[in-house]
Computed example of a mutant assay.
Amino acid sequence: MTTTGTATAPFRRAIAIDDLGDGRFGAELGPHWTVGPKAHGGLLMVLLAQAGLARLAADAPGAAPDPLAVAADFLRAPDPGPVELTTEVLKLGRTVSVVQVRMSQGGKAMLAATVTGGTLPDAEPHYADLPDLPADPPADAFDPGSQEKAVFGLSSSCDLRFDQASMPFARREQGPPVVRGWTRPRDEPTDVLFAMLAGDILPPTVFNVTGRFGWAPTVQLTALLRAKPAPGWLRVESRSRTVAGTWFDEDATVVDAAGRLVCQARQLALAPLTD
Rank of each mutant, 00 (worst) to 15 (best):
Glu84Leu: 14
Asp73Ile: 11
Asp256Ile: 04
Leu47Ala: 05
Arg235Val: 10
Thr6Pro: 02
Ala257Trp: 11
Glu88Ile: 08
Thr218Ser: 12
Arg161Trp: 02
His32Val: 14
Leu268Phe: 08
Leu43Glu: 10
Gly81Arg: 12
Gly5Asp: 10
Glu124Gln: 01
Pro144Asn: 09
Lys38Leu: 13
Lys91Asn: 09
Gln100Asp: 14
Val115Leu: 06
Glu84Ile: 10
Glu28Cys: 12
Thr4Val: 07
Gly42Val: 06
Leu273Tyr: 08
Ser166Glu: 02
Ala135Arg: 11
Gly5Ser: 06
Asp22Leu: 14
Met45Gly: 10
Leu120Gln: 05
Val254Ile: 11
Leu85Lys: 06
Val178Lys: 02
Thr116Gln: 12
Gly259Tyr: 05
Tyr127His: 14
Gly214Cys: 08
Ser104Cys: 10
Pro217Thr: 00
Cys158Asp: 01
Val89Asp: 09
Phe11Glu: 07
Val96Thr: 15
Val262Ser: 06
Arg180Ala: 12
Val35Ala: 10
Asn208Met: 09
Pro65Lys: 06
Asp122His: 01
Ala170Ile: 11
Arg171Tyr: 07
Pro10Ser: 01
Leu154Lys: 07
Ala51Phe: 06
Ala58Thr: 14
Ala265Pro: 06
Pro10Trp: 00
Trp247Ala: 14
Arg212Lys: 15
Leu47Tyr: 06
Ala170Phe: 04
Leu53Asn: 03
Pro217Trp: 00
Ala64Cys: 12
Ala123Asp: 01
Leu53Glu: 05
Ser157Lys: 02
Gln164Asp: 13
Pro138Met: 01
Ala109His: 15
Pro189Trp: 02
Gln147Trp: 14
Ala252Met: 12
Phe11Leu: 12
Ala257Cys: 13
Thr87Gln: 02
Ala257Asn: 14
Leu154Tyr: 15
Val70Lys: 04
Glu237Cys: 04
Phe194Val: 11
Ala227His: 10
Pro189Ile: 00
Ala72Ile: 03
Leu85Phe: 04
Leu234Met: 03
Gly107His: 01
Asp187Ile: 04
Ile201Thr: 09
Val151Asn: 12
Pro168Ala: 11
Ser104Asp: 07
Ala7Lys: 08
His32Phe: 12
Val151Arg: 12
Val83Thr: 01
Trp182Tyr: 07
Lys38Tyr: 15
Gly259Trp: 02
Arg161Tyr: 02
Arg266Cys: 00
Arg161Leu: 03
Thr8Pro: 15
Ile15Glu: 05
Phe142Gln: 05
Arg212Leu: 15
Asp19Leu: 03
Pro65Cys: 09
Thr274Val: 08
Ala72Pro: 01
Thr205Lys: 04
Pro61Asp: 07
Asp66Phe: 01
Pro78Trp: 03
Trp247Gln: 13
Asn208Glu: 10
Ala269Gly: 06
Ser104Trp: 10
Lys228Thr: 12
Ala77Gln: 15
Val179Met: 14
Phe169Arg: 03
Asp73Val: 13
Pro137Thr: 09
Pro67Glu: 00
Met167Lys: 03
Asp19Arg: 03
Ala216Tyr: 05
Ile17His: 01
Pro231Gly: 09
Ala258Met: 13
Arg241Asn: 13
Pro61Thr: 11
Trp233Asn: 01
